[in-house]
Amino acid sequence: MSLLQVQSPVYKEIKSVYRCHFQLQYLLSDETVTFRMNFSEEHDTKTVKSLIQHFESDLPEHSNVSVWRNQQNELSDICRQENSSVEPSLSSCSITQKGCAALISALRSNPSHLTELNLNYNEPGDSGMKLLSAVLNDSHCKLQKLQLRYCSIEEEGCTALILALKSNPSHLRELNLSFNKPGDSGVKQLSSLLEDQLCKLEKLHLSSCGIMQKGCAALISALRTNPSHLRELNLNGNKPGNSGVKLLSALLKDSRCKLEKLLLSDCSIGEEGCAALISAMRSNPSHLTELDLSNNKQGKSRVKLLSALLEDPLCKLEKLQLCNCSIGEKGCAALILALKSNPSHLRELNLSYNKPGDSGVKLLSALLEDPQCKLEKLQLWNCSIGEEGCAALISALR
């Protein structure tokens, strides 16, 4: 269910929206009629949500969701089998509170084998989360991955869920609550979970959860008390503010911190916060392999600091996302010159919706010609590249 085949009229409408909103570039990988429901990036919340809602209104005639609904009892029976070891992926199945209740009731009768549960893009709501909490409370529950993106969960449901995880924290490795509304109490409970020395969480996704400066500060303060397990942190579309980013910087400086993937797109990070963040990464650069600072304005001083990070031989960044960062010709040139001095690690670079100019593109072309360059994915959407720049790029790729 992670990939759904879309009929032509719906696809045309998606493409129309796609042309108008650059953030949707991640939703379509090419000109095929495939629409990926498991988004790799999270940016324009309103645009994505309205698109999903429109798409789901046409879903029954374009997918086999009805088959899933008809086989819900069969799935429940599978979950009840004592020797069953399943990882249900029910993403985008239009499951409501009633359907979730049936599934979770079945899981309660046999919780020990389930290691992964994906309910992304369904509507279990707070009542569904309360039922799921009973499963998580069970000492036999061995759940390691829990995906609840876009599940209409609000403060009460998030609080119940995280309280349950606190009672049995040692198994969970991955939690995705993106595009829900945990509220202050939910964030407070989550912070308390992260502080627990028994908590072994490695991946935490909280994109567009309405978490403001105070909530971000609480989360990051909690991670500082127990920093050695987390490998992936997604705070895209929240508002940590400079104070939250400074706390995050202190976490990154900690020698115990093993963070490999940090996503901070559309976080309204100011110059002061960005400077603190990049300075921290320079002091402990060897672990971080993916950084997303898209949709944050990178001034001249910030680009200079980022360039210094990329020049560091200890820097192991493999993926760098700088989409729509207001980087001009000089800034792009500085970044690319830095990459030329340390070219062997970077595998993916996104400079879309910036203005590298022909001089920046020529430098980029020289980077691509370097035999030490291992770049596999290069995104330059809407970069106003002229004929001369395109010719240099194509020549380098040949």
Results as ranks from 00 to 15, higher is better:
Arg173Tyr: 07
Asp254Trp: 09
Glu61Arg: 11
Leu375Gly: 05
Gln213Thr: 14
Val361Arg: 12
Val17His: 08
Val10Glu: 13
Val86Cys: 10
Val303Asn: 01
Glu154Leu: 07
Leu251Asn: 02
His345Gln: 15
Asp30Val: 00
Cys274Ser: 09
Arg302Asp: 15
Gly210Trp: 05
Glu202Arg: 15
Leu393Glu: 00
Ala366Trp: 01
Leu146Gln: 08
His54Tyr: 13
Leu346Phe: 06
Leu114Val: 13
Ser133Ile: 10
Leu368Glu: 12
Cys325Met: 03
Ser133Arg: 12
Gln189Phe: 13
Lys340Trp: 04
Gln144Pro: 01
Ala160Val: 04
Asp77Leu: 09
Leu251Ile: 03
Leu223Arg: 07
Arg69Met: 14
Leu235Asn: 10
Met212Gln: 14
Lys258Ser: 01
Asn64Gly: 09
Ser192Asp: 15
Pro285Arg: 11
Gly360Phe: 11
Asn118Gln: 13
Ile327Pro: 00
Phe179Glu: 07
Asp292Pro: 04
Glu318Arg: 10
Lys377Asn: 04
Cys93Tyr: 09
Leu309Val: 02
Met129His: 02
Leu291Ala: 03
Lys145Phe: 12
Thr115Leu: 14
Gly328Val: 12
Leu223Phe: 01
Ser112Gly: 01
Phe22Gln: 14
Leu132Gln: 02
Lys377Pro: 10
Leu363Ser: 08
Ser207Pro: 04
Leu107Trp: 14
Lys203Met: 02
Leu310Cys: 05
Ser84His: 05
Lys319Gln: 08
Ile269Pro: 00
Glu272Pro: 02
Ile394Val: 10
Arg398Ser: 09
Lys374Glu: 08
Ser85Lys: 08
Ser191Gly: 15
His229Asp: 06
Leu351Ala: 08
Leu103Gly: 05
Ser208Ile: 15
Asn296Ile: 08
Cys257Lys: 03
Ser352Ala: 06
Leu368Pro: 07
Ala280Leu: 10
Asn226Ser: 07
Thr289Phe: 05
Leu117Thr: 06
Val245Lys: 00
Trp68Asn: 13
Ser8Gln: 14
Glu202Ile: 10
Lys203Val: 07
Leu277Trp: 02
Leu322Asn: 06
Ser89Met: 07
Gln97Pro: 05
Glu376Met: 04
His345Cys: 14
Tyr150Ser: 11
Glu31Arg: 07
Ala276Trp: 00
Ile78Glu: 13
Leu175Tyr: 04
Pro60Asp: 13
Pro9Ser: 02
Val86Pro: 07
Cys20Met: 10
Leu317Asp: 01
Gly215Leu: 11
Ser109Cys: 12
Cys325Asp: 06
Leu368Phe: 12
Glu116Asp: 05
His205Leu: 15
Gly125Cys: 02
Gln97Met: 13
Leu293Val: 02
Glu41Leu: 12
Thr289Asp: 06
Cys100Val: 10
Ser365Trp: 06
Cys315His: 00
Tyr150Trp: 11
Asn284Val: 01
Asp58Lys: 15
Val303Ser: 02
Lys319Cys: 02
Leu262Thr: 03
Leu223Lys: 09
Gly357Lys: 12
Cys20Pro: 00
Ser112Met: 03
Pro371Cys: 04
Leu148Asn: 10
Phe35Ala: 06
Asn73Asp: 15
Ser344Gln: 08
Glu290Asn: 12
Gln71Glu: 11
Gly273Tyr: 01
Ile95Met: 09
Arg80Val: 15
Met1Ile: 09
Cys315Leu: 03
Glu272Trp: 00
Leu264Cys: 04
Lys12Arg: 05
